[in-house]
Design a protein around this nucleic acid. Structure first.
Length: 852
DNA sequence: CCAGGGGCGTTTTTT
DNA sequence: ACGCCCCTGG
């Protein structure tokens, strides 16, 4: 019954509207914008009304629907491009959407805002900065900047002695801001008798002050301040409410309260008296006014899938989507369930996993494109073993004709890249880590960027302090403290003190260095020649503002700063090969500024700084690169690949142990897995390692409970957890470790699922009927913590010497001959051709082998 | 003022 | 195992 694709009865009313000629009078079956769309997709493109929720299952063509909807609005003259605001999750998605809309329209989408929440807010805030007492060249602080500041505050308040850590304070401040709680409202509600709370209040207050003094906003402020701006200045809000007649929001399930509030503000009608004010200012309102003289609220389209909500940790509130219909009166819902991306096997896997989340709306993805290949499973002894499997399969796929760029490897935590990278490098598999330690997070890049920031925003003390002695110019912490204290006592900025440091009577060497830096920054600032944003009623994107005369290009400014500061020269001169790499990275940054200027002619220094601050991990993806992509499951959202590897399917990793303490944590981890699965078009590989090194200690892991939610016949194990673990008593029997006195085959995975199995039992799925199978997880002995890591010793063959030609015996693969030994020490790899199991590469240290 | 060594916290996910 | 922070000796 549930296998039949269809629309839940609750939604039928809305769906039947498709057939109402009055609602869709303009419908033309030959409309090119509707060709090739299924009825639900058409409905989503054609519907007109105040609010539309498109519940779009993974791979159901939502981007197609969104772009067609936008194109349809423009083509039918229902909206000018400039009246559309589309919010995407990444800048890359925004760029693609713009491209596709332009392709559909056959003309430019100029004036259309397609961007992320953060980019849109920065654009608004820079434009309206004066209203909220900000400089339009405010700096955007990233998490490490935040942590830096908090570290200093906590130290100064000695708050660490009462248990405050920068990370915890950062998280709490972020949560508050996502709820639109600022320092004033927090102070009003704080429990004054709780010393911890009062301490936190003080931290929060100082943090707020420092940012304000530095003319800086953190990520969360970008959204929150925009909401405050709109609420405090209705006539400013009205400019945007008037302009944007159609608001479209992608990935709505991941919006937090602040973002939700922003959407609410933007779709609020403008009252007649404010319209009159606008008109008096010369803003054109005649086309958009209603009978009463006001401007009706913009129409809102949101697209989302509550099964793909994976950002609760940063405040995403799933209720935004589940309560959409209640929230926005007159809302209609369209459900897209037909999947155009994956094979049925992949979809069945996804469905079988996600259906374990109770409390969700029933939704089943389906396809008419056939079952496809089975899901392939593999259990490695170690993370390296697992990585080896991935590398081998990537190799095999590539030889069979799949391009590297069509493959991706996903993992739960960034730390998991290490093993994968080591093996990929050794196997010469071209790969690229997406996200992780980003280019712009490297110390030397942050140094160079700090020069640019110090030029663009003289108030930014953090940037200035960073470059004060980088490269070394003999200014130590004593000098720095003296400058800071002088600034504080005289009500001056750090930059002003730097400029007039003679008053502090430093030695000649220090004075000279300080003056040199101050002059350098002043000269660079003169090159920038900032043009104030124009006051036109129509907010135009800053980067398209070509009116500024003779502004020095960002790359020239950077080149000047690098040259005069000696940053690169110093690195080159050090002789350290790592410094050479750093110098090259800075050269790369310079090249990137040139690229940026070429792609955004007329862009300002502040535009470049904004761009750098707001790049998302997924933005780095380069479709043209012929490499395998490695990324976290979070980064994978919204992407798709022909072949997908999901690694680390272990208890404690996926689901991650940290999520165990949080309510709803497990369900979110499951959604994360679901997101990963549904990225795959044709092939899906699921792998895990029986042991994983963490902090140098090797601990034993158990297969993820999520694996056991997948019906047996869907997965074909190349090496199942059972076979990978059945050692001759020398290795810990992880799966059994916490099993009570269960039956003979109790917590074991069915060995017959292993490579030597494949008989009838596998098809009959004995495993699934075994009630003891989950004893490890369902056991009542532990509560808060999962009993997922059983520490123990693993086999150590470290001193086993092997030479090509020697015969060995493997517990699972039987007898074989060594052909080659590569690697050294603990990473020694034996290449073995087994008589029956074929060629394998084994990590000598832990492989269950012996000489014969 | 700075370089180098020892000690400690760290890993959940991100705009 | 690694990177960052603090301390010490030059």
């Amino acid at each position: 019954m549930r296998a039949v694709p269809g629309v839940p009865s609750r939604l039928r009313t809305a769906m039947t509207l498709i057939h109402e000629p009055t609602e869709f009078s303009g419908q033309d079956p030959n409309d090119p914008l509707l060709l090739g769309l299924n009825p639900q997709q058409r409905a989503a493109v054609e519907y007109r009304g105040p609010a539309l929720l498109i519940v779009a299952g993974a791979g159901s063509g939502k981007t197609r629907v969104l772009t067609h909807r936008i194109a349809s609005l423009v083509e039918k003259r229902e909206a000018w491009p400039s009246q559309i605001l589309a919010i995407t999750f990444t800048n890359k998605a925004a760029g693609e959407m713009r491209e596709r809309v332009e392709l559909l329209l056959g003309s430019s989408a100029k004036g259309m805002w397609i961007s992320t929440f953060h980019s849109a807010c920065v654009r608004i805030l820079r434009r309206e900065a004066a209203a909220v007492g900000l400089s339009s060249s405010f700096t955007i602080y990233d998490s490490s900047d935040q942590r830096n500041i908090l570290k200093r505050i906590i130290k100064q308040l000695a708050a660490d002695t009462v248990g405050f850590t920068p990370a915890a304070a950062q998280g709490r401040i972020s949560n508050l801001k996502n709820e639109l709680s600022d320092i004033e409202s927090f102070a009003r509600n704080v429990n004054t008798s709780d010393p911890q709370e009062m301490m936190f209040l003080e931290i929060f207050r100082q943090y707020t002050q420092r940012l304000r003094a530095a003319g800086a906003l953190d990520f969360d402020d970008l959204i929150g301040e925009t909401v405050f701006l709109f609420r405090a200045f209705p006539q400013v809000a009205a400019l945007y409410q008037r302009r944007f007649r159609h608001l479209l929001v992608d990935e709505y399930q991941d919006t937090n309260h602040a973002q939700y509030s922003l959407i609410r503000e933007l779709t609020t009608p403008v009252a007649p008296h404010i319209v009159a004010e606008l008109e008096a200012q010369g803003v054109l309102v005649s086309g958009v006014q209603d009978a009463s003289g006001g401007i009706p609220g913009a129409s809102l389209t949101v697209v989302g899938d509550s099964d793909q909500s994976i950002y609760a940790f940063r405040g995403a509130d799933i209720r935004n989507i589940t309560e959409f219909e209640r929230d926005f009166s007159g809302a209609t819902v369209v459900l897209l369930e037909q999947n155009y991306r994956s094979t049925q096997n992949i979809l069945s896997t996804a469905n079988s996993v996600i259906q374990n989340n109770f409390d969700r709306k029933e939704k089943r993805l389906w396809t008419d494109s056939g079952d496809g290949d089975p899901i392939v499973g593999f259990t490695g002894y170690t993370a390296h073993d697992e990585a080896q499997f991935v590398a081998d399969e990537v190799d095999a796929l590539h030889r069979a004709g799949t391009a590297y760029r069509d493959m991706a490897v996903f993992y739960r935590t960034n730390a998991q890249t290490r093993a994968l990278e080591e093996i990929f490098v050794r196997q010469a598999v071209p790969y690229r880590v997406v996200g992780g330690t980003k280019f712009y997070e490297r110390a030397e890049i942050k140094d160079a960027m700090a020069y640019l920031i110090a030029v663009a925003n003289p108030l930014d003390e953090l940037a200035l302090r960073r470059i004060l002695n980088t490269p070394k110019r003999g200014i130590g912490s004593v000098t720095e403290a003296a400058l800071a204290s002088f600034a504080e006592h005289n009500g001056l900025t750090f930059r002003e003190v730097l400029r007039d440091s003679d008053a502090l009577n430093f030695g000649p060497k220090v004075s000279g260095a300080l003056r040199g830096l101050a002059d350098l920054l002043d000269e660079a600032a003169a090159m920038v020649d900032p043009a104030p944003p124009s006051d036109g009623a129509d907010p135009e994107p800053v980067e398209h503002n070509l009116s500024a005369p003779h502004r020095t290009s960002v790359s020239d400014i950077l080149a000047f700063l690098l040259e005069r500061s000696g940053l690169v020269t110093t690195l080159r001169a050090s002789g350290d090969p790592q410094d050479e790499t750093r110098a090259e990275n800075i050269e790369e940054l310079l090249a990137q500024t040139r690229d940026f200027m070429r792609e955004n002619p007329g862009a300002t220094l502040v535009d470049f700084l904004t761009h750098v601050s707001l790049v998302a991990a997924a933005d780095e993806l380069d479709d043209a690169s012929g490499t395998v992509s490695l990324m976290t499951l979070h980064t994978a959202k919204g992407l798709e690949y022909d072949s997908v590897f999901i690694t680390g399917l272990e208890e404690g990793i996926l689901p991650h142990q940290m999520s165990a303490h949080e309510p709803g944590g497990l369900a979110e981890e499951r959604r994360l897995f679901y997101v990963g699965i549904t990225r795959a078009r044709r092939r899906l590989y699921l792998s895990l390692a029986m042991s994983r090194a963490q902090f140098g200690e090797v601990s034993v892991a158990m297969p993820s409970r999520f694996l056991q939610e997948i019906p047996d016949p869907l997965i074909q194990w190349k090496q199942s957890p059972g076979t990978a673990n059945s050692r001759n008593g020398t290795s810990p029997r992880a799966l059994n470790a916490r099993r009570g006195s269960g039956g003979a085959n109790g917590g074991e995975w069915n060995e017959k699922r292993g490579i030597r199995g494949g008989g009838l039992d596998e098809i009959r799925g004995i495993r699934d009927r075994d009630p003891e199978r989950f004893s490890v997880i369902k056991g009542t002995t532990t509560t808060a913590q999962w009993a997922n890591r059983v520490t123990g010793r693993v086999r150590d063959n470290g001193d086993l010497t092997l030479a090509p030609g020697e015969r060995i015996r493997h517990v699972d693969f039987g007898d074989g001959r060594v052909t080659q030994v590569t690697g050294e020490g603990a990473k020694r790899i034996a290449h073995i051709v087994f008589d029956t199991a074929g060629a394998k590469k084994l990590l000598v240290k832990i492989a269950p082998i012996e000489k014969i």
